[in-house]
Design a protein around this nucleic acid. Structure first.
Ligand SMILES: [Zn+2]
Ligand SMILES: [Zn+2]
Ligand SMILES: [Zn+2]
Ligand SMILES: [Zn+2]
Lengths: 146, 146
DNA sequence: AAAATCTCTATAGTCACTATAGAGTCAAGT
DNA sequence: ACTTGACTCTATAGTGACTATAGAGATTTT
């Protein structure tokens, strides 16, 4: 049972170019080729790609996924590392959520400052964006990548 | 009162290169130059950059900020657009938060599946990442950029 | 005068893709 | 046999908001 890249894309819900990208990044092994140089995939590829896409839907980076795949490829190891990685990822998600919630409180607070349709000059939102009392001193950023 | 780019960076809590980047992107106007071709900034630049950094700390994109600056530069307009933009941004943040919370439930659920130190092969986490019962059919992605 | 610090421009890299160009392959219809 | 269309191939550039680097020039400190 050999399928081409387009079918694999349909089965895994990801784009053809993305599959080629994963191959280039070493997440998917290089598949066999047809006479006309088309990639030919089998069951193992399908399953591996679904694993990758599932991890991606959980916001894992390709580097995290690479680590998980590496563990999966050596089934005799202790699974402690899997737990460690998952735990670290959960914490990252938690941190991002609390950062976003804090930021949202700030935004909602700003929204209150405009009491209706006035001139931009007098708008409390723009003023609030200019000089803010939320942060201790000046507006330094506390940005984390999403 | 004219300061150089390094001082502006300190005052605004952002990197020198970032200031030059904002200039290239048209968010900051081109400043005057010294005899030795150094950028010289005044009060208006400082305030504008603080505005930008504040917006960035609220996760606004440069394109959103550009729009706000455009409004700010025409103070006679009605401020309705400011409200619209802020509202849309709040909704984006809310969507991102709920997506992350759902994803976190999924991750926590996965964490339960490993009952301790075993072989990778038998680990419930890796198995759970392979075939999942969370999603209706197969693991399609529901990604939003963060 | 020399050394250290700051600034300049230009270019490439990050991440996980997305988009495009131009050529080759294959199955179906005429 | 020929054309059409759908699919695939490689290679390259673009996205967003920066970060990192190289090599040169300006200014300040010692
Ligand atoms: Zn207003
Ligand atoms: Zn603030
Ligand atoms: Zn386990
Ligand atoms: Zn799942």
């Amino acid at each position: 049972m050999e399928i081409r890249i387009g079918d694999l894309a349909k089965r895994s819900g990801c784009e053809v170019v993305t599959i080629r990208y994963y191959e280039k990044e070493g997440l998917l092994p290089k598949p066999a080729r047809s006479g006309g140089n088309f990639r030919l995939y089998g069951e193992a590829h399908i399953e591996r790609l679904q694993f990758i896409r599932h991890c991606r839907s959980l916001d894992m980076t390709l580097s995290e996924i690479r680590a998980l795949l590496g563990l999966r490829d050596n089934p005799m190891q202790d699974c402690g590392e899997v737990n460690t990685l998952l735990e670290a990822h959960i914490q990252q998600v938690e941190m991002r959520v609390s950062a976003l919630l804090q930021l949202k409180r700030h935004l909602v607070d700003l929204r209150e400052k405009c009491s209706g349709s006035r001139s931009v000059e007098a708008c409390g939102i723009l003023q609030g964006l200019g000089n803010c009392n939320y942060h201790g001193e000046s507006a330094t950023n506390s940005q984390t990548s999403g």
